[in-house]
Design a binder for these strands. Structure first.
Lengths: 197, 197
DNA sequence: ACTTGACCGGACGCTGCCTCCGTTTTACTC
DNA sequence: GAGTAAAACGGAGGCAGCGTCCGGTCAAGT
């Protein structure tokens, strides 16, 4: 947690204070009202003017990325657990589930994530996290392929998309059973040996 | 194309005229700017006031449903072609593709469709078309299952969801190759005999 | 031609987005 | 502790879209 470079003047105290308040409030609003929540309302509840919010986070995506940053610690934790596993197939499965939960954190989150995953806009602050996730997925995929559990034609990006889709559907309010069926369908799609149902 | 019941006074000519103009303009705007397009702009370009638009179509979903009504003729046509096929597996595959195209007609269409498919809101004008599509999918699925091409555990609703997902991803601007990979993945998921890749 | 009611359309109030700029706060200096 | 300048604040304001309401209008029936 290095403060980075502090050249010249020490940063002002209210900057950090406002930033923290904004992030906390934004996370609560994203949780309650989805990623489309009113930024004006966030600013007001955080006790700052809209100008301050937009100076800290120029776009909705920037704010979202900053909030996700704190949320991604949870994902990293699960990743540590998953790395303990011996079975590469299980590891992949749990990783996909972890990503899905991450994507479902806020209602409507998959849309901006997909927009960023397209990655034609390198200044989109969500592009980098997406890239990391796709790369990580690819590693799990390769490991499972080496162990003979996953078809050779599958790429990490494909399963990233699939996880994103499931999260999107979950966000639309589809009930749990349908989701389980879809997950099973996808798993049958990438697995090499067929567990016939 | 019956005019239905015309009890009492004959309906005014401008009603039909405005309705048609609105539908045409709305379709064009949905095509160009997605389902979130400005309804005010639609009304203006159709040459009517916003009040007229909202009287004809009280909600965005109502307008969308009316526009889709005319679009669904294309789907029915493809359905007729599909029914000609002998191979139930091919029929299912083509039907899924037809639905996917239908869902991709306008950018952002999958979201309101999924909201309607949840069907907790019976007054949502999109609920009925969704129900019809799910039922139709289920029939193709059953036929393919009888022919031994599809796993017994698969339901029509599952593949409806899958097609909707793919359409959603397509709408986010993902390139074609990734989409093909995802379609293949899903097909591997529901097919009974495994075409190992 | 005239009546009548269905229909029209735009003005209006509201919410949210984002920017600009006068004011305030803060760290630093002496 | 008082002074200073830069950095940050915040709210007013312009803009766009939504959905409603009501005075005026137009066409179908007589």
């Amino acid at each position: 947690m290095s403060t980075g470079e502090q050249r010249g003047r020490k940063p002002r105290a209210d900057v950090q204070r406002n930033r923290t308040a904004l992030l906390e409030t934004a996370q609560r609003h994203f949780l309650q009202h989805g990623v489309g929540t009113s930024l004006e309302a966030v600013a007001k509840e955080a006790g700052v003017g809209p100008g301050t919010l937009y100076r800290h986070f120029p776009t909705r995506e920037a704010l979202l990325a900053a909030v996700l940053q704190t949320r991604s610690e949870e994902l990293v934790a699960r990743q540590a657990d998953i790395e303990q596993l011996d079975d590469a197939a299980q590891a992949l499965e749990q990783w996909l589930r972890a990503m899905e939960d991450y994507f479902s954190a806020f209602n409507g989150l998959p849309d901006p994530l997909m927009a960023a995953a397209r990655a034609q806009e390198p200044d989109n602050p969500l592009t980098i996290p997406c890239g990391i996730l796709i790369t990580a997925t690819d590693q799990y995929v390769r490991a499972a392929q080496l162990a003979g559990h996953v078809r050779a034609s599958v790429r990490g990006r494909d399963l990233f998309l699939a996880a994103c889709s499931v999260a999107w559907i979950k966000g639309t309010g589809t009930e749990g059973e349908s989701l389980d069926r879809l997950r099973t369908l996808i798993a049958s799609g990438y697995r090499r040996q067929d567990t016939q149902a």
